[in-house]
Every structure is written in C-alpha cells, then in structure tokens.
Amino acid sequence: MSFPHRHLLGIKGLSEQDIHYLLDQSDAAVKISRQREKKTSTLRGLTQINLFFESSTRTQASFELAGKRLGADVMNMSVANSSVKKGETLVDTAMTLNAMRPDVLVVRHSSAGAVALLSQKVACPVINAGDGAHEHPTQALLDALTIRRAKGKVGRLIVTICGDVLHSRVARSNILLLNALGARVRVVAPSTLLPSGIRHMGVEVFQRMEDGLKDADVVMMLRLQRERMAGAFVPSVREYFHYYGLDAVKLALAKDDALVMHPGPMNRGVEISSDVADGPQSVIEQQVEMGVAVRMAVMETLMLHGELAR
C-alpha cells in the first residue's frame, strides 16, 4: 500500500483508501508522541521548511513539533503579508527556497490556490497548511482521526458543521473528507455565512441549530472572525451567540455521546460557551494532539513513500 500523491494540496483528489492510509499512519504516530522518548530518526538528515505567509501559532508549532519528532531539521519562515509585496514574492520566495534544497515545504498563504502555484515551482513535496478559503487538509485529517478514534468509524455518522462556512477552508476540507468516508454532513449557519451553491456541495443545510443538531454524532464549531461580527455578516456577537452559539441547551439536542470539536482558536462566548468547550463531550484538546500525529504521518508519507510512488 502506498500513497500515490506527490504533494498534499487538498483533500480533493484523495480517495477513501488514501485517507484511511494516512489515518492508519497517524495512529502509529500517536504512539510515538506518547512515549517518553519521542524523537525518532525517520527523517534524519532531511530539511523541513515551514513557510507561513499568514501568521499562525498553533498550526506552525504543530508542524514544527511533528518534524522534530521525526528527526528532521526544521526551519520556520514567517513572511507576514504586510512586509512583502504579495505574489511576486511568493514565486520568487519559492524559487529561492527551492535552491536551498529542502525536502518538504509546509506552506500557509492568505490566497486560495497560492500553495498550488508555489508547488509548481519547487522540486520537493509541498503540504498545504491553509490557503485562503480553499483548503486546510491536515485539519480535516486530524478531525477525522479524532472522530475515528472516539467512535471507531467515520462512515454513516452525522456530522454537523456550524458557523462561518463561507470563509472557512476547514469547512471545505472537512466536507470533502467526510463525504469521501461516507459520513452524513450537515451545515448550520446564517445564510450570509454560507457560500453560493452550498446545497450542491454534499451537505444538508440548516438555518436553525435546533434542526441541524438533532441526532448529530459530531458537532464541529467554526471560528467566527471578529471583523465579521459587527454588522458585516451578522449584526452582533450577542445575536450570533443567541442563535448559533453552542451552549449546553443546544448541545442536548444532539446525541448524548456527541463529540464537540473546534479547530481553534476559540472565541468563548461567541460560537461556543465555556462550559461546553471544557465539558465532558469536548474533544478539542484531543484534536490538538491528533494534529501533531497527522502531520508526522503526512510528512513521513510524502517524504519517504512519495518517492517510491514516483
């Protein structure tokens, strides 16, 4: 069994087998992270460059730790968009870095398609760590891993995604992945936060949490950015929380053992109440742990197995 892709630019294009392969690899990586000796020599001598055109703390730290646990040399480059002229720098930076002979590039960019553009200019595997509102494949994989470990499966579960689907790359990657594994996907959001054509994206659409949460096995909350709360897309924080925030009362409509998930960072009191975020059904911390494992699995697969597939 191998993984027939050179890069990980998105969930689109991955088969059900590809996804389960990565999840199986990730299960193995979880074990490594739980040992006292967490460092292996799998990627010793190889160079990983994290290239973040958009600021990130959590995702970058997760990729950095994943690389270090596999023994790679990790370099972080944070290129804030404000300090560079966009685009020109993207391709130029790609060619510059390529000349330094990295073995994997982990890239985040604020423009959809930017990571794919960069991947055309370099000789090593590229991992998309989030491109605009397009995709964030390792987030979807870590969500699936969290679900699979908690529920034993992903297929046929009812997964409800709530919040700002319009601007969310996490939502797009999750919709693709959950459909590929045969889950039933619902989205709940005010229509101002849903993309055009959402009904044809393989989801059931709800405007009321009460309807969308009924009998759900998994509740995935999305982050709502502050600048979108004050009249642009929804009138106010308090109105949004009233109708779309996840609290204990709304959560009670889902199955008793429903998982509560959030990609982080959370806005407590905006999309999720603290008692739910910290409650017994929450797997938000597990998601963070699975994130490191998934990224270890993806990097190992692309850097070692990918070469065999070529």
């Binding site: 689109k12 959809a112 398609g113 509102a133 995709e135 790359r169 797009r172 993309p195 055009s196 054509g197």
Partner: peptide, 15 residues
C-alpha cells in the same frame, strides 16, 4: 463568477 465552482475554489464570487 459566483457559484458552486467559485465556492469550491474558495474564491469570492461576482454575482
């Protein structure tokens, strides 16, 4: 163009 294709690409559409 605004629509399903733009939505999947994550690009803002023009209605």
């Amino acid at each position: 163009n605004e629509g399903l294709f733009a939505s999947w690409l994550g690009l803002p559409g023009i209605p």
